[in-house]
Computed example of a mutant assay.
Amino acid sequence: MPAFICTACGTQYPPSDATPAQCPVCEDERQYIPPEGQSWTTLERLRISHHNGFRQYEPGLIGIGTQPKFGIGQRALLLCTPEGNILWDCISLVDDATVTLIKGLGGLHTIAISHPHFYTTLVEWSRAFGDVPVHLHANDAKWVRRPDPCIKFWQGERFELLKGVTLIHGGGHFPGGSMLHWAAGAEGKGVVCSADIAIVNLDRKSFAFMRSIPNHIPLSEKAVRAIGAALMPLAFDRVYSHHFERVMHSGAKQILQSSVERYVAAIGGAYDRV
């Protein structure tokens, strides 16, 4: 039986004879059902119509994205460390070329995912690399569409994946929204992979914080300050968020602090008369 994948968000569902009746991920206010309605594909079909592209951002960090764009345009990050390799976030397409490339770099030690919009085909990724564990924050457990023994839920505010690589609970976009801190990144100044929890804006001079990006639902002051507070104790100079182009190359910690204050001022009415 095929394991159907929602074409709108990229989430894979358990094997079944018929397509799912609905996609709760798309029906949630943080996502949307396209005007033409819900549609479905399979990994086998996706492997024919799409392929993955790769971009090395810096030594030890490679971006992986599907072309042409699929789902919400998710981008995964492959972090290569002396302790083992980590896949940060999952994209729907995992194919032979991608598996061959990653195995050539040492395979995967573990997978970690920031929030439910990146759960996609996490089971397929785990199996492709020998049933490696997939770490998800327990606060988002209800969003798992395809349960599997490979899924390991973590709790609390921090979880060390490997030496120098730590998951940080930020909340915000989803209750379990998580970010990854890589201490050795950015030439030893530290890197944060923030996904949609703290979004690098197109000006590369500020961050945004949203409950829903496509539906423009803002977060509360409390939620945004919690994201900032989760990251401030860490040393970092560079941030990679959701898309290939969303990179804050330097000064990211100070910019994050100022972005939190700008956001709080904005939702408090500071720009009402500007």
Score class of each variant (00 low, 15 high):
A3T: 01
I5F: 05
T11D: 06
Y13N: 06
T19N: 04
T19D: 05
T19C: 11
T19V: 15
P20E: 06
A21Q: 14
Q22I: 05
C23P: 02
P24C: 11
C26I: 09
C26M: 12
E27Q: 15
E29N: 11
R30W: 12
Q31R: 09
Y32M: 11
P35F: 04
P35H: 08
G37D: 11
W40P: 09
T41G: 08
L43Y: 11
E44N: 09
R45D: 14
R45T: 11
L46H: 05
R47E: 12
I48M: 04
H50E: 05
Y57M: 08
I62E: 14
I64E: 03
I64A: 02
G65E: 02
P68D: 05
P68W: 07
K69M: 13
Q74C: 12
C80W: 00
P82E: 02
G84N: 09
G84L: 08
I86W: 06
C90I: 11
L93I: 04
T98A: 05
T98K: 06
G104E: 07
L108W: 08
T110K: 09
I111L: 11
I111W: 10
I111Q: 10
A112R: 01
I113H: 04
H115T: 08
H115R: 00
P116R: 05
H117C: 13
H117A: 14
T120A: 15
L122K: 10
V123C: 13
E124D: 15
W125F: 07
S126K: 07
R127D: 07
R127Y: 04
G130Y: 08
G130S: 09
V134F: 03
H137Y: 08
A138F: 07
D140H: 08
K142C: 07
W143Q: 09
R145K: 12
P149D: 02
I151M: 01
E157C: 02
R158S: 13
F159E: 09
E160F: 04
E160Y: 00
G164F: 13
G164Q: 10
G164P: 09
L167N: 04
G172W: 02
G172V: 06
G176T: 08
L180G: 04
A183G: 00
A184E: 15
E187G: 14
V192R: 03
A195Q: 12
A195R: 06
A198V: 12
N201T: 06
L202V: 06
D203V: 02
D203S: 15
D203L: 04
F207P: 01
M210Q: 14
I213S: 01
P214R: 08
N215Q: 15
N215K: 15
H216M: 12
L219R: 03
S220A: 12
V224E: 03
A226K: 12
I227V: 14
A229V: 03
A230N: 08
P233I: 08
F236A: 05
R238K: 15
Y240L: 15
R246F: 09
Q254W: 02
S258M: 08
S259Y: 07
Y263I: 01
A266G: 11
G268W: 10
Y271S: 10
D272T: 14
V274C: 11
